[in-house]
């Protein structure tokens, strides 16, 4: 018996896309498996990795020294009034100012200090912020103070040895 189906005419509606789709799928799966993403990360830049005494790492005799601005940072325990639990907060002090766990307040204080130094003929590019942490200061608290310095438009930020 002859099947009617075999007599039907086969229509080609375009180029055969199947090999293309196969190859593209292979490429896609390869990229999904081998590619790595660094999305969600960014970096705080420091061009002065470490300073010994707060005056910069390298000494060049014919270049005027930077004006050091030391910020001492400590991590201290405090009792949270709402929960009653002990939480760790940071305390930053620079000169006569002292700020506890408030980055906006520290930023405005540092900004005022920068403006005073600018008024005294010290350009911002010559102000060297030296973050001076204690041995048990948490890294996240250093980052808070680092950000406050950057927000106060201070460009050069370094770390000193622990106290």
């Amino acid at each position: 018996m002859k099947l009617k189906v075999s007599e039907k005419i086969h229509y080609e509606s375009g180029p055969n896309m199947t090999p293309l789709v196969d190859i593209i799928m292979v490429i896609l799966i390869f990229m999904m498996l081998t590619g790595t993403f660094a999305v969600g990360e960014w970096y705080l830049q420091s061009n002065m990795p470490m300073t010994e005494k707060g005056t910069g790492g390298t000494s060049v005799s014919n270049v005027p020294l930077d004006e050091p601005l030391e910020i001492r940072v400590e991590t201290i325990p405090r009792i949270d009034p709402q929960s009653g639990l002990t939480v760790e907060v940071w305390v930053a002090s620079a000169g006569r100012i002292q700020v506890e766990n408030d980055r906006a307040a520290l930023t405005s204080q540092l900004d005022a200090m920068r403006q005073k130094l600018n008024a005294a003929n010290t350009p911002t590019s010559r102000i060297q912020v030296v973050i001076s942490p204690g041995r048990s200061t948490r890294y996240k608290h250093l980052v808070e103070v680092y950000q406050a310095a950057l927000e106060a438009k201070l460009e050069k930020v370094a770390f000193s040895r622990s106290r």
Binding site: G40, Y43, L44, P49, R135, R138, Y139, F159, S162
Partner: peptide, 29 residues
């Protein structure tokens, strides 16, 4: 983020001794 500075300090000193031009601190957005 919870690292104490005394553990970060020797790494920074090593960078300074190796005369690394700059140090970037990775943070989270």
């Amino acid at each position: 983020e919870n690292l104490h500075y005394r553990f970060l300090e020797p790494v920074l000193i090593a960078c300074a001794e190796a005369r690394v031009a700059a140090v970037n601190f990775a943070t989270r957005q």
